[in-house]
Write a protein that binds this DNA or RNA. Structure first.
Lengths: 237, 237
DNA sequence: AAGTGGTCTAGACCACGTC
DNA sequence: ACGTGGTCTAGACCACTTT
């Protein structure tokens, strides 16, 4: 583990356990430097991650202030998988695999998904239920050359866990788009709903070496959708 | 202007103008260091911003790859004001000030907005129209002690421009939440719409010294809403 | 083996806020 | 005046990819 990651973790835990509480200041960079026995730059790297996550705010001349965490409990932002989400919130959740096939990418599907035409991809359709009620329909396309093996068993658990921990893929970044779309008959049936609209999240997901391995359309029941974000103002940089 | 900002700007412009084109590599850090006549750390700071914005991806041992920008044209993410947005997209947009008052914060309004009870705030209701059609209703609450002066004139232009450039406020970060809500009669009238739902964006916005100066509810017509985001996977850090 | 980015160090000086 | 974080430098060594 890198030193700055360990320091970040330690400070993060201390903030979450209220050892450093909201509204107070963290120790100065000089003090943290001595506390952990590292250079100032290493401390500053850890503080930079805390800043980016919205846990602290640095004010020149004053120090690093600990921010209130109340609104940040639900991290739909930042590329978190459904499985990780329900686990961290301890929700009772069930996944049902509706479809699992290998398909060839047509030219129109290529335009939508970003995958090369005529390449092979897995198509996986799943429904996600909480308290026995379907709240999400996921349609995943996975590059077949990066994910040669896939089963209903894996798809009903966490695909991300399998990709990262079994296949060792380095999932790195995503481009996402959220819109509201009219619901068709099939979607109404799957969602067991008469709502005329659903929330559609399209994402293209890439590995650390910039190869695309996934395209997903995630359709949320309109009353089950909530997106929480922490944003920093990017001045005219 | 800071050196790393200038370097960031220069590389950003070169990417946008296709001087460095998607799929190719940036010069090495050593080359950039010599090109700009700075230390390696300063180059790395500029590259870190490009990475965070999703413009490049660094791959150890290979270099900094330029990513495709196609999905990132519409930066609703990252705390951009409506005025800045319509300007950068060159949309014809009109703002109509429906209400402008000073109100005292009740206990319930305090809970919603995050402002202290019994403090004074501006309440501003505005509609935003594109091509003569209302697409957004904004309800803003601004801390009166931080913004002592407000007019219909300012509210119909850009409030953010006034706050940053006239008052010199340092707008820094926000906590945002996006949900879909049923539309009431008044909202239907303002949006000139029969839709049963609208997109609600609640945000609390803070200054660099962590004082809250704004709470906003932004209600979007459901078919006019689009949210695009670039997200990096935050491993179990 | 050579070249790339990733981490870490030690030190300097500046900008800002508080006292 | 002092203490804080912000910027910048120069150099070392490590991890990974390519040749």
């Amino acid at each position: 583990m890198k030193k700055y990651q360990e320091i970040f973790n330690d400070i993060k835990d201390k903030i979450l356990s209220d050892y450093y509480s909201a509204g107070t200041s963290l120790p100065t960079e000089k003090d943290l430097q001595e506390l952990y026995g590292v250079s100032r730059d290493t401390v500053r790297k850890a503080l930079a991650i805390l800043t980016e996550r919205g846990m602290i705010q640095k004010v020149q001349g004053r120090g690093s202030l600990v921010l209130k965490q109340e609104l940040l409990n639900f991290p739909v932002s930042g590329l978190t998988s459904y499985q990780e989400l329900t686990q961290s919130l301890q929700l009772q959740s069930q996944t049902n695999v509706v479809e699992l096939d290998v398909v060839s990418v047509s030219t129109s599907l290529s335009k939508l998904t970003g995958f090369e035409a005529y390449s092979k991809v897995w198509k996986i359709v799943r429904t996600r239920s909480i308290d026995g009620k379907v709240s999400v329909i996921d349609t995943d396309y996975l590059a077949h050359d990066l994910v040669p093996h896939m089963t209903r068993e894996i798809a009903s658990q966490s695909i991300y866990d399998y990709l990262e921990n079994k296949l060792g893929l380095d999932i790195s970044f995503a481009q996402k788009e959220i819109t509201i779309e009219p619901t068709n008959r099939e979607e109404k049936a799957l969602l067991q709903s008469q709502d005329d609209y659903l929330v559609l999240i399209k994402s293209r997901v890439f590995l650390g070496d910039t190869r695309q391995f996934q395209y997903t359309e995630s359709k949320h029941k309109i009353d089950k959708f909530r997106f929480v974000d922490f944003a920093r103002r990017k001045h005219s940089l």
